[in-house]
Amino acid sequence: MSTMKSVRTGGIGTIEVVDVERPAPGPRDVLLRIRACGICGTDVTFLRMGGMPARAHLGGEPVPVPLGHEPAGEIVEVGAEVTGLKAGDRVVVNPQAAPAGIIGCGGKYGGMSEFLLIENAEAGKSVAVFPDTVPFDVASLNEPMAVARHAVNRSGAGPDDRVVVFGAGPIGLGAAIWFKLRGVKHVVVVDVIPSRLETALAVGVDAVVDSATEDVTARLTALHGRAANALGQPRPGTDIYLDAAGAPAVFDTVVANAKWHAKLVMVAVQKKGEIDLGGMLRSELTLVASQGYPTEIFEVTPELVEHQERFARLISHRVPFAEAERAFGLTMTPGAAEKVVVTLDD
C-alpha cells in the first residue's frame, strides 16, 4: 500500500500530520500532486473545535477533519475515461464539487496533503487548468478569491459607486481588488492593523482608514462627500459597505454612517451582537448576505492569471509542508500573519 502525508485536526487547537493511504484514481478520476495549499479561517474554526463541529454538538468526541480546501497542484494520474485533462496539467480545484464531501471541510479528502483525488474529474467543473507562468502559491488563492468575487458580484457595484471594505484580510483585500478591476470609482479599506492597510494601498485601493486611530465618519465624509439618511441626518456619501471583518463594531459603524439607500454586503462570518434595526430603518439600509461562490470558482481564474502580481501581494507567509504546524500556528495567532500558504516541493 502506498502512503502519503496528510494534515488533519488533532486535539483542540492542534493539527496532526498523519500517514494515510494514497488514493488511486478510478476511470473517471484524476490524482493531483499538491504543490500549494492556503490556510483559511474555516480551518482555524475546525482546529478550535478539535474536529467536526457537527459531531461535537451531539455530545460525542469531535471527529478529525482532513484540512485544506485551497489547493493547487499538478495532475500525475488520469483515469481512462477522463477527457480534456492530462498528466502534467496544473490545476486549481473546486472543493465543493467533490462527491465524497467538500474537500477540506468535512469531506473524505483534504487538500493539505501530498496527493488529492479528484473524483469525476471534469475541466471547468471540478478543476480548472492554469498556465505554468503562474506560481502554485498564487494559484492557491483561486478559492478565496472566488469567495471575494461573489461578494462583489452580490454588491452590484457600478463605476460611479463609492465603496468601503471593512477588514483587510485576504477576503477583504480580494474584494477590494475585484472592485477596482470592475471599474469602481473609489474604494476605501478600513482596518486596525497598519501593515494590512499598507498592503491595501499596494494592491491599488484609493484610500485607507485606520479605525483604531482615526474618526471613520469624518474620514469617509472627507473622501465620499456629505449625504443624509431618510430623516435628513448627515451621513457620508458612501454607497456600498462590505464587511469582511465580522466584528459587531463594524456593523454598528455601518448602521451609524449609512446614508439613505446605502447597501451592506456581509461576507464575513458574523460574531454575535445586537443589530440596531431602527438605525437600518432610518437609512433604508439594504443588507445583502454573501456565501461561497455559486458560479465564481473558475470565473476568477483567468483574471487571477492576468493580475497575478497584484494578488501575490496578499500572501504574507509561504511555509514548507514540513513546517505545517508552524503554518497553522501563524494563522491561529491574531496579527501574526495575513495569508499563509503551505508549499509542497518534490
Score class of each variant (00 low, 15 high):
Pro71Gly: 06
Val63Ala: 12
Leu32Trp: 01
Val65Leu: 03
Cys37Ile: 04
Met52Asn: 15
Pro53Tyr: 13
Pro62Ala: 08
Pro27Arg: 11
Val65Asp: 02
Gly41Arg: 13
Glu61Trp: 02
His69Asn: 08
Ala72Lys: 06
Gly26Trp: 01
Gly26Gln: 09
Pro64Met: 04
Met52Asp: 15
Val63Pro: 00
Leu31Glu: 09
Thr45Ile: 11
Cys40Met: 00
Leu31Asn: 06
His57Met: 14
Asp29Trp: 08
Arg35Gln: 12
Gly68Asn: 04
Phe46Arg: 02
Ala54Gly: 09
Leu32Phe: 02
Glu70Gly: 06
Ala36Val: 00
Thr45Met: 12
Ile39Phe: 02
Arg35Asn: 09
Gly26Met: 09
Met52Tyr: 15
Pro23Thr: 10
Cys40Val: 01
Val44Arg: 04
Pro27Thr: 08
Pro23Ala: 06
Pro23Lys: 11
Ile75Gly: 05
Arg28Met: 06
Leu31Lys: 14
Gly50Gln: 04
Gly73Arg: 12
Gly59Asn: 05
Val65Ile: 12
Arg55Gln: 11
Pro53Gln: 05
Leu31Ser: 07
Asp43Gln: 03
Pro23Trp: 06
Ile75Phe: 07
Arg55Met: 13
Glu70Met: 06
Pro62Val: 03
Met52Ser: 11
Ala72Asp: 05
Met49Leu: 11
Val30Asp: 04
Leu58Lys: 15
Arg28Asn: 15
Ile75Leu: 07
Ala56His: 12
Asp29Phe: 06
Leu67Ile: 05
Asp43Tyr: 01
Gly51Lys: 00
Asp29Asn: 06
Phe46Leu: 05
Glu70Pro: 00
